[in-house]
Protein backbone atom coordinates (compact mmCIF):
# COMPACT_ATOMS: atom_id res chain seq x y z
CA UNK A 1 0.00 0.00 0.00
CA UNK A 2 1.23 3.49 -0.69
CA UNK A 3 -0.05 7.02 -0.21
CA UNK A 4 -1.14 8.26 -3.63
CA UNK A 5 -3.29 11.26 -2.77
CA UNK A 6 -3.63 13.67 0.11
CA UNK A 7 -5.70 16.83 0.24
CA UNK A 8 -5.88 20.38 1.51
CA UNK A 9 -8.98 22.55 1.63
CA UNK A 10 -8.46 25.82 -0.24
CA UNK A 11 -10.52 29.02 -0.24
CA UNK A 12 -10.32 29.45 -4.01
CA UNK A 13 -9.16 26.67 -6.33
CA UNK A 14 -7.83 28.95 -9.09
CA UNK A 15 -5.86 31.09 -6.63
CA UNK A 16 -4.59 27.91 -5.00
CA UNK A 17 -3.42 26.49 -8.34
CA UNK A 18 -1.50 29.70 -9.01
CA UNK A 19 0.15 29.67 -5.58
CA UNK A 20 1.04 25.98 -5.57
CA UNK A 21 2.45 26.00 -9.11
CA UNK A 22 3.81 29.50 -9.77
CA UNK A 23 5.03 30.32 -6.25
CA UNK A 24 5.84 26.97 -4.60
CA UNK A 25 6.84 25.29 -7.87
CA UNK A 26 4.65 22.18 -8.04
CA UNK A 27 3.19 21.12 -11.37
CA UNK A 28 -0.44 20.57 -12.26
CA UNK A 29 -1.50 16.93 -12.61
CA UNK A 30 -5.30 16.94 -12.95
CA UNK A 31 -7.73 19.80 -13.54
CA UNK A 32 -11.12 18.23 -14.25
CA UNK A 33 -14.35 20.28 -14.07
CA UNK A 34 -16.84 18.84 -11.58
CA UNK A 35 -19.96 21.02 -11.47
CA UNK A 36 -18.92 24.37 -10.01
CA UNK A 37 -15.59 23.02 -8.81
CA UNK A 38 -12.65 21.03 -10.11
CA UNK A 39 -10.79 17.82 -9.36
CA UNK A 40 -7.55 19.72 -9.06
CA UNK A 41 -4.27 18.06 -8.13
CA UNK A 42 -0.62 19.05 -8.16
CA UNK A 43 2.56 17.03 -7.69
CA UNK A 44 6.24 17.61 -7.09
CA UNK A 45 8.41 17.83 -10.21
CA UNK A 46 11.21 16.24 -8.15
CA UNK A 47 9.44 12.91 -7.64
CA UNK A 48 8.48 10.30 -10.25
CA UNK A 49 5.04 8.81 -9.60
CA UNK A 50 4.87 10.55 -6.21
CA UNK A 51 1.71 11.42 -4.30
CA UNK A 52 -0.74 13.99 -5.63
CA UNK A 53 -1.97 16.87 -3.54
CA UNK A 54 -5.69 17.54 -4.03
CA UNK A 55 -6.63 21.22 -3.74
CA UNK A 56 -10.15 20.70 -2.50
CA UNK A 57 -13.01 23.25 -2.27
CA UNK A 58 -13.56 24.52 1.30
CA UNK A 59 -17.33 24.83 1.04
CA UNK A 60 -18.34 22.29 3.69
CA UNK A 61 -19.52 24.13 6.84
CA UNK A 62 -17.15 22.11 9.06
CA UNK A 63 -14.09 23.34 7.19
CA UNK A 64 -14.05 26.98 8.28
CA UNK A 65 -14.12 26.51 12.08
CA UNK A 66 -11.63 23.66 11.77
CA UNK A 67 -9.14 25.62 9.71
CA UNK A 68 -9.65 28.91 11.59
CA UNK A 69 -8.79 27.23 14.90
CA UNK A 70 -5.64 25.63 13.51
CA UNK A 71 -4.58 28.84 11.78
CA UNK A 72 -4.99 30.83 15.02
CA UNK A 73 -2.63 28.48 16.87
CA UNK A 74 -0.16 28.37 13.98
CA UNK A 75 -0.64 24.66 13.24
CA UNK A 76 0.35 23.53 9.74
CA UNK A 77 -1.84 21.12 7.76
CA UNK A 78 0.81 19.70 5.47
CA UNK A 79 4.56 19.34 5.33
CA UNK A 80 6.83 19.59 2.29
CA UNK A 81 10.48 18.50 2.28
CA UNK A 82 13.15 20.82 0.94
CA UNK A 83 16.90 20.41 0.44
CA UNK A 84 17.87 23.89 1.62
CA UNK A 85 15.37 25.59 3.89
CA UNK A 86 17.28 28.90 4.10
CA UNK A 87 17.34 29.14 0.30
CA UNK A 88 13.61 28.37 0.09
CA UNK A 89 12.88 30.90 2.84
CA UNK A 90 14.80 33.58 0.94
CA UNK A 91 13.23 32.65 -2.40
CA UNK A 92 9.67 32.56 -1.06
CA UNK A 93 9.84 35.70 1.12
CA UNK A 94 11.22 37.60 -1.88
CA UNK A 95 8.03 36.54 -3.68
CA UNK A 96 5.87 37.93 -0.89
CA UNK A 97 5.15 34.68 0.95
CA UNK A 98 4.42 35.25 4.64
CA UNK A 99 6.01 32.89 7.18
CA UNK A 100 4.48 32.50 10.64
CA UNK A 101 7.72 30.79 11.67
CA UNK A 102 11.15 31.41 10.11
CA UNK A 103 13.60 28.51 9.75
CA UNK A 104 14.04 27.04 13.22
CA UNK A 105 16.47 24.41 14.49
CA UNK A 106 14.52 21.64 16.20
CA UNK A 107 17.43 19.27 16.70
CA UNK A 108 16.90 16.65 14.03
CA UNK A 109 15.78 19.12 11.39
CA UNK A 110 15.12 22.71 10.45
CA UNK A 111 11.48 23.69 10.04
CA UNK A 112 9.62 26.78 8.91
CA UNK A 113 5.90 27.52 8.53
CA UNK A 114 4.34 29.54 5.73
CA UNK A 115 0.86 30.81 4.91
CA UNK A 116 -0.41 29.41 1.58
CA UNK A 117 -2.85 32.37 1.12
CA UNK A 118 -5.65 29.82 0.68
CA UNK A 119 -6.44 29.28 4.36
CA UNK A 120 -3.65 26.87 5.37
CA UNK A 121 -0.30 26.89 7.06
CA UNK A 122 2.36 24.64 5.51
CA UNK A 123 5.48 23.39 7.24
CA UNK A 124 8.73 23.14 5.29
CA UNK A 125 11.32 20.74 6.63
CA UNK A 126 15.00 20.15 5.92
CA UNK A 127 16.22 17.02 7.66
CA UNK A 128 19.76 17.20 9.03
CA UNK A 129 22.33 14.72 7.71
CA UNK A 130 22.46 11.50 9.76
CA UNK A 131 19.29 12.51 11.60
CA UNK A 132 18.44 8.83 12.07
CA UNK A 133 21.58 8.41 14.17
CA UNK A 134 20.75 11.51 16.20
CA UNK A 135 17.21 10.25 16.65
CA UNK A 136 18.36 6.90 17.99
CA UNK A 137 20.90 8.23 20.46
Amino acid sequence: MKISLTSLFVDDQRAALAFYTEVLGFKKRHDIPLGENFWLTVESPEVVDGPELLLEPAGHPAVKPYRDALMEDGIPLAQFSVNDIEAEYARLTSRGVVFTQPPTDIGTAFVAVLNDTCGNLIQLIEMKPNWNDADAS
Binding site: D73, G74, I75, P76, T100, Q101, T104, I106, G107, V113
Partner: peptide, 17 residues
Protein backbone atom coordinates in the same frame (compact mmCIF):
# COMPACT_ATOMS: atom_id res chain seq x y z
CA UNK B 1 15.50 34.25 22.19
CA UNK B 2 12.97 34.73 19.36
CA UNK B 3 9.99 36.94 20.00
CA UNK B 4 6.61 36.55 18.32
CA UNK B 5 5.82 32.83 18.24
CA UNK B 6 2.61 30.92 17.57
CA UNK B 7 1.37 28.30 20.02
CA UNK B 8 2.50 25.65 17.51
CA UNK B 9 6.08 26.98 17.47
CA UNK B 10 6.23 27.18 21.27
CA UNK B 11 4.97 23.58 21.55
CA UNK B 12 7.52 22.44 18.95
CA UNK B 13 10.51 24.09 20.62
CA UNK B 14 9.52 22.92 24.10
CA UNK B 15 9.23 19.35 22.82
CA UNK B 16 12.25 19.25 20.52
CA UNK B 17 14.74 21.42 22.44
Amino acid sequence: ARDGQTLFEICTTLAMR
